[in-house]
C-alpha cells in the first residue's frame, strides 16, 4: 500500500452488507486478501449459510417496499448511485491499481464505465415495461394487457473478474425491475464490492434491496439453490459442476436459474442489455371485459 513518509496507514475492517447495515459474519470466520504482489490488504468476512439465510430475510422484507416504488423513483435512486460513485472515482481507481493489480488506464476505464452503466440502467427502470410489455389485440370484447413484474428475491453469484464493473453490470439489471438481491462476491478483490456497498448505502437505496456477502462461492451454492424463499439465481461464469448443482437444487421450488457466461472485458457494450432484465421478471396478463 502506498504510504507517505513515516505515517502509519489505517487498515479498514470490511464487513458484510445486509439490510442497510454492516454486520460481521455470524460465523466469525475471515478470509485474508492479498494484492497481486502478495502483500496483505485486508481480512474480509467469510460468510456462512446462516448469513445467507439472514440476507434472504432482509431481501424478502425489502421486496414489497422496493417493488412498490414507482419506476421513476427507482430510476432516481439508481442515478443517485452513479452520482455517489462519480464522487468517489479516485478511491476506486486507487483500489483497483493498488490492490487488484490494474494498470492506471484499465482502472480508470472500469470505474468510468461503472458510473456510465449505472446511468444507463437507471434510464431503463421506467422504459423496459413499455418495451417488453404489451397490450394484446384479443379477438373478443376484452381489454388485455401484459406487464412484467419482479420475480422476487434473487441471489447473484457475481463475476470472478472486474470487481467493480462486473458487480454493477450483473446486479443492476436484476434490481431495477423491483427485485431484491443477495450478491455473493468471490473474486480476488472482494473488498471492492464492500467499498461499493458504502456507495449504495449513501444513495437512498432502501436497506435490504442489495445485500452483499463475501466468502467462498462453492460453499454457498447448494444452500442458495435449495433455499425455498429464494425465487431466482443468476450465476455468472459457472463451471459445469455449479450449473448442475444449482439446476438440481433449484428444481425443488421451480426456481428461475439463469447462467451468464460473463465477459473478459466488462466495458464492452455487449455487457449491457435490457435482455438481462428479463430472466427475473414475470409477465402478468390482465383481462377485463369491455362493454356497457
Amino acid at each position: 500500500m502506498a504510504s507517505t513518509s513515516d505515517r502509519l496507514s489505517v487498515y479498514k475492517t470490511y464487513k458484510l452488507y445486509m439490510d442497510g447495515g454492516f454486520p460481521r459474519t455470524e460465523s466469525g470466520r475471515h478470509l485474508k486478501i492479498q494484492d497481486d504482489q502478495g502483500q496483505f490488504v485486508a481480512n474480509i468476512c467469510h460468510a456462512s449459510r446462516k448469513d445467507l439465510r439472514d440476507a434472504v430475510v432482509a431481501a424478502r422484507e425489502a421486496l414489497d417496499g422496493w417493488s412498490g416504488r414507482t419506476a421513476f423513483n427507482r430510476g432516481q435512486i439508481l442515478h443517485r448511485m452513479a452520482e455517489m460513485l462519480e464522487g468517489r472515482r479516485a478511491d476506486f481507481i486507487d483500489m483497483l491499481t493498488e490492490q487488484a493489480g490494474y494498470d492506471e488506464n484499465d482502472a480508470v476505464a472500469e470505474v468510468n464505465c461503472a458510473v456510465d452503466r449505472l446511468i444507463w440502467y437507471a434510464g431503463w427502470t421506467d422504459k423496459f415495461e413499455q418495451v417488453f410489455g404489451s397490450t394484446n389485440p384479443v379477438a373478443s370484447k376484452h381489454f388485455n394487457f401484459t406487464l412484467p413484474e419482479p420475480t422476487g428475491v434473487v441471489t447473484i453469484f457475481t463475476p470472478r473478474n472486474a470487481p467493480l464493473l462486473g458487480f454493477v453490470s450483473t446486479v443492476l439489471p436484476v434490481i431495477l425491475s423491483g427485485n431484491t438481491t443477495i450478491a455473493v462476491v468471490d473474486n480476488p478483490a472482494p473488498q471492492v464490492a464492500m467499498e461499493f456497498a458504502e456507495v449504495l448505502n449513501n444513495s437512498d437505496l432502501p436497506g435490504g434491496v442489495i445485500n452483499i456477502l463475501t466468502g467462498v462461492r462453492e460453499e454457498l451454492l447448494v444452500h442458495a439453490g435449495g433455499h425455498k424463499d429464494i425465487d431466482g439465481i443468476l450465476s455468472v461464469g459457472p463451471d459445469s459442476e455449479e450449473r448442475e448443482t444449482l439446476g438440481l437444487e433449484g428444481a425443488d421450488s421451480v426456481k428461475r436459474v439463469e447462467f451468464l457466461e460473463g465477459h473478459d472485458d466488462w466495458t464492452s457494450d455487449e455487457a449491457q442489455s435490457p435482455y438481462r432484465i428479463l430472466p427475473f421478471v414475470e409477465f402478468k396478463t390482465n383481462w377485463h371485459p369491455v362493454g356497457r
Binding site: N144, E282, W287, P289
Partner: peptide, 21 residues
C-alpha cells in the same frame, strides 16, 4: 401470471399465458 377481472377462463393467441412460482 393471468388475472381475469370480471371474467374467467378466457384464452387468445395474442394473450401471453404462464405461471409465477
Amino acid at each position: 401470471g393471468v388475472v381475469w377481472g370480471n371474467t374467467y377462463n378466457q384464452f387468445d393467441p395474442a394473450s401471453p399465458f404462464g405461471g409465477y412460482k
